[in-house]
Nucleic acid binder design. Sequence first.
DNA 1: TCGTTTTTTGCAACCGGTTGCGGCTCAAAT
DNA 2: ATTTGAGCCGCAACCGGTTGCAAAAAACGA
Lengths: 343, 343
Amino acid sequence: MKAKKEITIYDIAKKLKYSPSTISRALNDHESISKNTTLLIKKVAKEMGYRPNSLAASLRNNKSKTIGIMISRINRPFVSSLISGIEETARKAGYNVIISQSNDKYENEVINAETLYNSRISGLIVSLSMETRKLEHLRRFMDQGIPIVFVDRVPDELDIHKVIIDNYTAGYKATQHLIEQGCSRIAHFAGAQHRNVYRERKKGYLDALKDHHLPVDNDLIVSFKSLSFGEGEKATRNLLDLPQPPDAIFSANDTAAVSAIMYAKKRGIKIPEELAVIGFNDDPIASIVEPALSTVIHPAIKMGQISAQRILQHAAEEDENNSPEVTVLPTELLIRDSSKKKA
Amino acid sequence: MKAKKEITIYDIAKKLKYSPSTISRALNDHESISKNTTLLIKKVAKEMGYRPNSLAASLRNNKSKTIGIMISRINRPFVSSLISGIEETARKAGYNVIISQSNDKYENEVINAETLYNSRISGLIVSLSMETRKLEHLRRFMDQGIPIVFVDRVPDELDIHKVIIDNYTAGYKATQHLIEQGCSRIAHFAGAQHRNVYRERKKGYLDALKDHHLPVDNDLIVSFKSLSFGEGEKATRNLLDLPQPPDAIFSANDTAAVSAIMYAKKRGIKIPEELAVIGFNDDPIASIVEPALSTVIHPAIKMGQISAQRILQHAAEEDENNSPEVTVLPTELLIRDSSKKKA
DNA sequence: TCGTTTTTTGCAACCGGTTGCGGCTCAAAT
DNA sequence: ATTTGAGCCGCAACCGGTTGCAAAAAACGA
């Protein structure tokens, strides 16, 4: 249990009769150190088993090679894939990733922001909690020039970095697909409307109806709090009990869509003949439910990769030409059996 | 973009005419500082907007308040729940969590271990990659007295901290349940046998058969590489093509179990009448597939919480009475329709 | 009142890299 | 021979807390 002494640059310096500054510079490939010395120092460093103390460097630079992530909850398919993408690219660049969950509570997000700030992260990737409406808790990062990239659930502000999908078009296409299958009373499971993703999906839905001269029936638009399984069942029951029940549902997520399918089947409703269903996300459950759920593919891992790249790229540039970039990734409609009325 | 100056303990010291040492001690509730001064200092610190620079403290202590996690892949239901539990308890204690994925490659695990080590984490939680057979890459942590807690996929060594479930009993009970349903030719989808979890589940399966005087037929035991959906389908096909096909399957995970159900149904096999199926993990897909999959519940979040607590507790104790603890959590058999032959 | 104990606080070194600025060396230019 | 300058490298301060040891202050006892 004796803690073996760590090798420092001072040890290398002493051994090689160089100054610590030279060792430091050599290890960082500083140009003002000759090729030969650099090579020698690196060789000896390796031999001695030197490993850099990133804490010391971080302290000096007041910046740790770490990317912070703020998300709602890790154990959701979309989120964990997102993180997976971030972690992968961050690590390749020698960055660590630290994670904080808000559990969709604004309050937690504020606390986590503070903690992450104190950790001197060099960049922050945020997918907003369901509750969040203000960005005050993130102001500090901006003031300090710490790059923030918003991903998926982003604020409406314009001059910020975003990595999103085209929710509007996805919603439009999903609805249009249902219309093309011959559906005319299409219900929509809508998420919280102050979150861009759900608002855009709904807008796409509405415009698709409009463009195809279908009436908008507010009874068919259900506002969800969390798009959970239970909520989905209840909503489906209400819809099916309507005097004129819908002949299709476009749900803003897969969980609710699957619950609709399962509940409707229990009632003896034929899917997709009597009720076509399409979801959003392509969660694993989408391909398991029967009939398999048509859905919109969300490039979660890629979104994570791109978000991380933005941070890394910002960290690499010494000057701060921070023109906020908005990246919109394409989605894809994945048609399975739950919406395929025509052969 | 002007980086506002951070408040340090020196600023507080100057303002209050105390020395930085006193400030530092007061903020850490050091006993040798009088109650009054402590209170005063804390008040002023708050007023001035002081926030501790954990990097500096970490450097001095050569230990950052950070827990490292090594797992295979984040985007798997069990793993993301595990992390969720770790993150939650770690954060409550003021610790950060940094994550590294091995993608089930030993090579990556080695690299990640090195990176985490260099980050001066104060503890490490590890669920081994599928490939890992040696622990050399973790030796460094042990030598430095950095606590390691293994979770779920753990090594066979005895004198280490482990948080696991009783895979043997779970496997035994799952198999026994199938036997009680009247099944006599029970197949097993087994995972890599050098990983404790899969080995134990198989042992439970074998012992259950033995105890109920059922023969062990090696044709009915399929060795999987990764227990994936594709592998599951193929294995099921082979089993059903057998002269004497099985009347039940106990799969070491849900993915393969679900694939078996779906494939068998496609062949017109009745579940559970002709083929009873039981899985492991209770992934979301388990409750979606039809008939719903019986499975073994894995307390993933709790496992994460306990693992984190172990680390925190070790960090709290100044003396190192490191008697390795092994925590075995109970599992529960969740009987759904896929295995319910009798009413 | 004065020495002794206990409490409270300060000094200064330390953790391990990083970096502005200045110095030294040696070759090319004048 | 002297100047100039490019190439290499070292000095020393710095990042912001932490802590052993000693000193100062307060409390106590005789």
